[in-house]
Amino acid sequence: MRPPSPSIPEKEFVYQALKQSLRLDGRNHLDARTPTLDFGPDLGWVECGYGKTRVIAYVEAKMTKPPPERPLEGIITIHSEISPMASVDYEPGRPSEEEITITRMLDKILRRSDAIDKESLCIVAGERVWHLRLTIHCLADAGNMLDCACLAGIVAFKHFRKPEVEVIGDEVIVHSAAERSPVPLAIHHMPFCVTFAFFPDPSMRPVLDPSLLEQRLSTGLMSIALNAQREICVLQKAGGVPIAAEEVLQLIDVAVTVAKDLDKFVQMRLREDWETRKIEIM
């Protein structure tokens, strides 16, 4: 059963409020919710929250033989699971259009943007490479799950450390965490996803970080993935609403500030978490 679209009073009220530049959670139209990041006991396990939207991401690494066409590169795969736990909108087995969009955007932002250096994942050319597997679980959907999943994913990669490996001749020695400290992944840049929602009436300005109701009532979404160095990795505009070029540029400027803030926030949280993980060596 598809969920019913928002009721008539809900729709009318949200539009009426947006015309007065009011949002239901008291935010301004270009305010994002403050994200939360919680780290698990393992390296590479992150729970990210945007308001009531919650996503868990974790990274695992194993060794495999690389495909013959790319003998010098490691492999990164992304598995995203959006179960009915997140919201009644999602059904098991049959991915909805929204789910496909999220999965494809995650692939574009995290894997194809070359954020992670794949060549550094190579151990023995053509023989052994690291295979990183990022799993994303969506726990609750209260709007803007894509941004939340994307932040969780990139922070999980940033938080993850792979075991130190030594190659002597043909022999590969994997050192456990107790022997030698694990090494972080080589990450070129950190892309963040920023989503705007558009509404049919031009008197309703676009909103940043839409809530579930705003997302359902919007006529179009624009997701911009960019890093704090103002480099745009992906720009996707779904829905048919036309926007002027200047408006897109204005929104990109907003997205840049958001990405810069997110970058600072992520660095701070990672540093805080790292402080708690120091072990004294006797």
Binding site: F13, Q20, L22, R23, D25, G26
Partner: peptide
Amino acid sequence: IWVSTKEAKQTIAVVR
């Protein structure tokens, strides 16, 4: 919960 007030911001206050 269904809420109806005169002004939109009052409804928003109730919701919050």
